[in-house]
């Protein structure tokens, strides 16, 4: 960590860091169960060493990326990002990671690479949610980004938070963090990154295309069918205050990312 660039990106003045204990005990990681406390209860069983990430698809140099290698060779940056869950709560988390673009560049994507597909580990023996016969997610959990979104400087692969290694329940050893999109886009415990020609099918739109879109950019003007997205509960809150704040367009990263979506109707491509 000596080489780490601390506070490379900071959040807004009013964005107080969420306590580590809350960020690591209140998670959606459906491989480990559907309750918020299931991930920290069960994720300890996941073996994260050794861990490699397959990089394949439309690239000149496919291969496997060793996590230790990623840690050893790249300069880590601390990025303090707002995390907005699609369920209308939010946190502020100091991630440690590297820009995804650097990893992708090293694989030398071809001109056919239009999208990036990510996959999470499938290991039912260590993941109770994957053993459930009533699970709606078609494992592996898959996510995807358009090439320009993946190459955007705000998009990172994270290996740590709060100055330490990622807890398993937060997506150890490597996860994606895309701060202007709803949290579920930031896929955890990645084992495969593929550069592909077509928009890949992703977990939530596959289950319910009316409620979740491929882009899933944070957008206060487009409601989830079951609740409003105009505001969010900044956690931790208490029984005496919901800590409700207005949700910002692109989660407050509008200046940086709005140009990616110029000319697109964000109600259609939600």
């Amino acid at each position: 960590l000596d080489n780490t660039h601390w506070q490379a990106v900071t959040a807004g003045e009013n964005d107080k860091l969420t306590p580590f204990n809350d960020a690591s005990h209140y998670n959606n990681f459906f491989e480990f169960g559907t309750s918020k406390d299931d991930p920290y209860k069960h994720a300890g069983d996941m073996t994260t060493e050794p861990w490699t990430i397959e990089i394949d698809g439309e690239v000149a140099r496919p291969g496997t990326l060793d996590v230790d290698q990623l840690l050893g060779e790249q300069q880590l940056e601390e990025r303090i990002y707002r995390l907005r869950c699609v369920e209308a709560w939010s946190m502020v988390i100091p991630w440690l990671g590297v820009p995804l673009s650097e990893i992708i560049k090293r694989a030398e994507p071809t001109s056919d690479a239009k999208f990036v597909r990510f996959q999470t580990l499938v290991r039912p023996e260590e993941m109770p949610g994957q053993r459930s016969r009533f699970a709606l997610i078609d494992w592996p959990y898959q996510e995807g980004l358009r090439m320009d979104e993946a190459m955007h400087p705000l998009t990172i692969l994270s290996v740590g938070m709060y100055g330490r290694v990622l807890p398993n329940q937060n997506g150890a050893p490597v996860r994606l963090v895309v701060p202007w999109k709803y949290g579920f886009k930031s896929i955890k415990s990645i084992v495969r990154i593929s550069l592909v020609k077509e928009q890949p099918p992703t977990a939530w739109p596959t289950i319910n295309a009316n409620e979740y879109g491929f882009y899933s950019n944070v957008n206060p003007d487009v409601d989830h069918p079951r609740w409003s997205q105009a505001r969010e509960r900044r956690l931790p809150n208490s029984l005496f205050s919901t800590n409700m704040i207005d949700t910002q367009m692109f989660n407050g990263y509008e200046d940086e990312v709005a140009s990616l979506y110029k000319g697109m109707d964000l109600r259609t491509y939600f």
Binding site: D22, Y26, K36, D37, W89, N237, S238
Partner: peptide
């Protein structure tokens, strides 16, 4: 649980 701070960062949702 809520009074003892054991209900997580969103006690209202917990209840």
């Amino acid at each position: 649980q809520v009074a003892a701070g054991q209900a997580g960062p969103e006690p209202g949702q917990y209840l």
